[in-house]
């Protein structure tokens, strides 16, 4: 074993593995209100890019709410689907990064973006089927004193860096640190990411998938769960709960 052995950076999940941190999004409850989008941007120092760049699709939102139309007027219906990094157990973004900036955390079972390694090839974004990654095309201005609200626990990304949802890893760490100091396990709901914490409809639930008693595990087992683009075999850690569609009342 040499000192500079390259660690295994690509996740090697088997479909039977449950992972560690997981999220459940109840689409029957999501009202599309965008509170998660705002909460995420505020927590994670996400830059705003302005009207023109936003129009070019360069918005930096780590979570976006997709809106789908179904049918035609007057029989038209809508559904909302918040999409963020799915923290794939078998992630397409990981093997394509030439500098190991996009890699898998084996301890937390999360996809990592190591900002100081990233050289901006954007291969990972190209390979992400969920379009969950955003790229800093410029150093976006954050005029003084707006920078006062920057969260010191989250790196401020510069131009040329790829970024994406981290499941608010700084909050996971804060909870793990607190738990370790008190000699206990992280409690269910203790490490909520900003989106789950804000969601007024409580449509986003976060927690340990390897704890069968956690709220998130119970919801995964509820029978309504689907994974996004499951057929690609990416083994996402985010589960969407269906419901509502096709439910019709005739009096």
């Amino acid at each position: 074993m040499t000192e500079h052995q390259i660690p295994e950076v690509k996740a090697d999940f088997s479909p039977e593995e449950v992972g560690k941190w997981g999220m459940v999004i109840d689409q029957d409850l999501c009202t599309g209100c965008q509170a998660c989008v705002a909460a995420c941007a505020m927590e994670n120092n996400v830059s705003f890019v302005g009207e023109e760049d936003a129009g070019y699709g360069r918005g930096m939102h780590w979570v976006r709410i997709e809106r789908f139309w179904e049918g035609e007027y007057p029989k038209i219906s809508t559904s909302f689907q918040p999409v963020m990094c799915q923290q794939c157990g078998h992630a397409p973004c990981e093997p394509v990064c030439p500098v190991f900036a996009t890699m898998h955390s084996e301890a937390e079972h999360l996809n990592m973006q190591v900002y100081n390694r990233c050289i901006g090839t954007r291969y990972c974004a190209n390979n992400c089927p969920y379009q969950a990654r955003t790229f800093n095309w410029y150093d976006y201005e954050r005029p003084d004193p707006l920078n006062n609200q920057l969260n010191p626990e989250v790196t401020v990304r510069r131009r040329g860096i790829m970024e994406k949802c981290t499941f608010c890893i700084q909050r996971i760490r804060r909870a793990e640190d607190a738990a370790a100091a008190e000699g206990r396990e992280v409690m269910d709901g203790e490490a909520d990411p900003a989106c789950a914490q804000a969601c007024p409809a409580d449509a986003i639930i976060f927690g340990r998938l390897d704890d069968p008693e956690s709220r998130v595990s119970k919801q995964v087992r509820s029978g309504r769960g689907v994974k996004l683009l499951e057929e690609l075999g990416t083994l996402p850690q985010v589960t969407y709960l269906k419901g509502g569609a096709g439910y019709d009342r005739n009096g």
């Binding site: 209100c33 509170a35 705002a38 909460a39 941007a41 505020m42 804000a198 007024p200 409580d202």
Partner: peptide, 8 residues
Amino acid sequence: KTCARGQA
């Protein structure tokens, strides 16, 4: 809970 406006 909060809404987007509260967050901002």
